[in-house]
Amino acid sequence: MPDTVQQNGHGEGAYNYAYLDEQTKRMIRRAILKAVAVPGYQVPFGGREMPLPYGWGTGGIQVTAAIIGRDDTLKVIDQGADDTTNAVSIRRFFARVAGVATTTRTEEATIIQTRHRVPETSLKDGQILVFQVPIPEPLRMLEPRETETRTLHALCEYGVMQVSLYESIARHGRIAKTYNYPVLVNGRYIMSPSPIPKFDNPKLDRNPALQLYGAGREKRIYAVPPYTSVKSLDFEDHPFEIERWTECCALCGSTESFLDEMIVDDTGKRRFICSDTDYCQERQDGQRR
């Protein structure tokens, strides 16, 4: 994140703790409580635009800014990695505007802001996972009109989603969706889990951590409280399945993590390594000891 963001945020040049002014934080905090009370429902929130490009994950940043405090330890991951430009920028941003400690260790973090992954390491009661969400509406690709999708959620009328998944099975012999795979939360609302691989969907189910989802462009916040049922949509004859690899991680040997395929040398040789850099590093350190 550019250094100019902090200075440009406020007309008066006043300094706000954690970047947002207190009124904006109160508004987001009220929306978060509604989101927790109605799991999976997308709560609209108002407020002014954040002067950040949307690709930075403004929704996640707004949620984190509204909850973070000096006692927190923040971890930020992008595609599972702590060391991407985006993750490093967001971590530095909050270290500066909120004076928080940062970490790459999943187990040390009180708040984990993430794009595109859920950590492999199990989360604990008291931790908060903040997802950056590009498109909060799971029905958007099937129904572009907001008034219509809102009505479908209100009526719990999710046939259109079932039909779409079944068409995928008819065409491909299986549900082709591998990212942003829709889930049913607490038996009531269909929710977009954000573009995480479907590999991560089972981790959302009955997780002891609180999950908060922020969408900046559409100004929506939704939540999954701890220990809440999150079910990936499927059919009896086509049950939900996660990705499997025949390889193990070339660095730590894990057979249980989400693997990225990497080209490792000039000859085009391919290897598979963990997408979750902290998990992989911890395992390698453990093996060295």
């Binding site: 706000n16 703790y17 954690a18 207190e22 934080k25 109160r26 905090r29 978060i32 409580l33 927790v36 009370a37 509204a66 909850i67 973070i68 405090g69 000096r70 006692d71 009661d125 008291g126 609180l210 409280p225 701890p226």
Partner: peptide
């Protein structure tokens, strides 16, 4: 200390709503 006090209070309240 409005900014920090309300942040701590909110996290406590959020903990209550989440549990």
């Amino acid at each position: 200390d409005p900014a920090h006090d309300s942040q701590r209070l909110f996290r406590t309240l959020l903990d209550a709503f989440a549990h």
